[in-house]
């Protein structure tokens, strides 16, 4: 075979291969087209795109699919009312109000909580719990302060203050990531506009709590008795606020003998946008 013939063969074979593959692909794209609902893309654009998973679906695209299959439109906490309204607009239905929730760490022990021993292992809550019998705190439901939740937060809303994780409610988007990350299960969701909070999760009896933590709820029930709205319940030696009833009056804050209940009203930009 001469040199030139080889060149022609090569050109011919590759050209033919390319042409055949091209035709097959063109044909396949006709045969295998998948109908995509145009609203799906519109909803994806309306969602914030943080892929936080707070709605319960895997990412924003997953939530858009779920909405088209009939899921409620008010599940996106980072997007808030604005996003819910946009989605409702796309679907042509009535907008539902989003109940904004933020995370809250139910512990304020930190330096005021007693320690069983000095822990100097890997700085991670789960590791500390698994390797050293529940972690270095005497309180079995106290924040260990290694910042596993801080690392989990995609929005930079969490920080460690005096050995306890704190949520900045002005930044928190309510995605539940810290709630899932906390191995002690002491982070809960509270309404964005709730000011009065009880930062303790210990269920031990009062005498025990007094010994192990200076910032623990002793379950005396004074706050519950003094609440004008019956919003505080005593559950297993721990005061818990029912936010459906709480009016943020702050009575309990003044009455608590341990000075434990906090009122975030004064410090928050949610309430005082000017400051």
């Amino acid at each position: 075979m001469g040199n030139l013939t080889t060149v022609w063969y090569a050109v011919g074979v590759l050209g033919a291969l390319g042409a055949v593959f091209g035709l097959v692909l063109a044909f396949a794209s006709r045969v295998f087209t998948v109908e995509v609902d145009p609203r799906h893309e519109a909803i994806c654009d309306a969602l914030p795109g943080a892929n936080c998973g707070g709605c319960g679906s895997a990412g924003c695209a997953g939530y858009a699919t779920a909405i088209l299959n009939g899921a409620p439109t008010n599940k996106c906490l980072p997007g808030g009312d604005e996003t819910a309204a946009k989605i409702a607009d796309i679907l042509g239905i009535e907008a539902e109000d989003v109940k904004e929730m933020v995370a809250f760490v139910r512990c304020s022990g930190g330096g005021r909580a007693k320690r069983k021993y000095t822990y100097s292992g890997i700085q991670d809550c789960l590791t500390a719990m698994n390797t050293t019998a529940g972690g270095p705190l005497t309180c079995s439901e106290g924040c260990l302060g290694f910042g596993t939740c801080v690392k989990a937060c995609s929005f930079g809303a969490m920080s460690l203050v005096d050995g306890v994780a704190k949520v900045d409610r002005d930044v928190c988007k309510g995605c539940f990531k810290c709630v899932a990350a906390c191995p002690k299960d002491i982070i809960t969701m509270v309404p964005l506009l709730a000011d009065v909070k009880i930062p303790c999760s210990n269920h031990d009896r009062g005498a025990v709590v007094r010994k192990i933590c200076d910032a623990g709820c002793i379950g005396c029930g004074i706050c519950a008795k003094n609440c004008p709205h019956d919003a505080i319940l005593m559950k297993d030696n721990l005061a818990v606020i029912d936010y459906d009833k709480c009016q943020n009056c702050g009575n309990c804050v003044a009455k608590c003998p341990r000075k434990l209940i906090i009122n975030e009203n004064e410090q928050s930009a949610v309430r005082n946008p000017a400051s």
Binding site: V24, L25, A28, S29, V31, F32, T33, V34
Partner: peptide, 8 residues
């Protein structure tokens, strides 16, 4: 091709 085929 495989991608298109699988999608359908």
């Amino acid at each position: 091709f495989v991608e298109m085929f699988l999608q359908k």
